[in-house]
């Protein structure tokens, strides 16, 4: 199977702190790939590098055959991303925000309008499309963040805690959206602390700590290796050994 994302020797330092340390990872095309690790492990930094929000100290990252560091604009068209707790301009409405981002992504007006309606409905914001975002709750902004990530129908989705701020019903709805997207063949690179969520959505897993990948494999192989299907137990055991 070909890789949707290939990361080689990625390193990012902030002064004396190494947030990402020679990280190498392959994400197979069409997989739902979980990126799991404790706070400060380097997950968000990796996602920010992949989305061109920050520059790495060294290393490479490719989306399919596009070098994300040398051709960031072309690479960004291949991905939809939700990074950190998303914020939007409070004076704009969701429709206007998606119109703005769609234009920046080179989409024509018809496609922007069609996809805005489709994805705002998918995330449950269709009745709020013309309300100012300034009045929105955290959960509603997060739904909009997911809609903007899907807007240009990218083959790869990079999601950092995508259900952050959603209520349990909202979380379940959004999980179903992601499950459907994997069935459509999208590649999902999914960073989360919620192990139950990862178990439900993902088929492949990498555990990261101190900026390094501790291991990466399919869920089936990992469970076979650890002789348990309890992902939480596997995770805690791996992280505890890493600390030692």
């Amino acid at each position: 199977m070909s890789n949707a994302i290939s990361i080689k020797g990625l390193t990012k330092t902030f002064g004396d702190i190494t947030a990402v340390d020679n990280l190498t990872l392959d994400v197979p095309k069409g997989s739902a790939f979980a990126f799991l690790g404790p706070n400060g492990a380097g997950k968000s930094t990796t996602l920010k590098i992949l989305t061109s929000l920050i520059k790495p100290t060294s290393g490479e990252a490719h989306f399919f055959n596009i070098n994300a560091l040398e051709e960031p604009h072309e690479a960004l068209l291949q991905i939809g991303a939700v990074v950190e707790s998303a914020e939007f301009y409070p004076s704009l409405t969701p429709s206007e925000t998606l119109d703005y981002f769609g234009r920046l992504r080179g989409m024509n007006s018809d496609k922007i309008s069609r996809n805005s309606n489709k994805f705002l409905k998918l995330v449950g914001l269709d009745n709020w499309s013309d309300k100012k975002i300034g009045t929105f709750s955290r959960g509603m902004k997060q739904r909009l963040a997911i809609a903007q990530a899907l807007l240009h129908e990218p083959p790869i989705l990079l999601l950092d805690e995508p259900t952050f701020g959603l209520d349990p019903r909202g979380m379940a709805e959004i999980r179903n959206v992601f499950k459907d997207l994997t069935k459509e063949g999208k590649t999902i690179f999914f960073s989360s602390h919620l192990i139950g969520e990862i178990e439900e959505i993902c088929d492949t897993l990498a555990i990261i700590d101190k900026g390094q990948v501790l291991f990466s494999d399919t869920m089936k192989n990992i469970m076979k290796k650890f002789k348990t299907d309890d992902l939480e137990e596997i995770y805690l055991k791996t992280i505890t050994e890493s600390v030692r």
Binding site: T51, S52, L53, P72, H73, E74, L76, L77, I79, A81, V83, E84, A86, E87, F88, F101, L104, R105, G106, A145, Q148
Partner: peptide, 8 residues
Amino acid sequence: YTLFINPI
């Protein structure tokens, strides 16, 4: 976080 992930 939502603006700079666009190709501009």
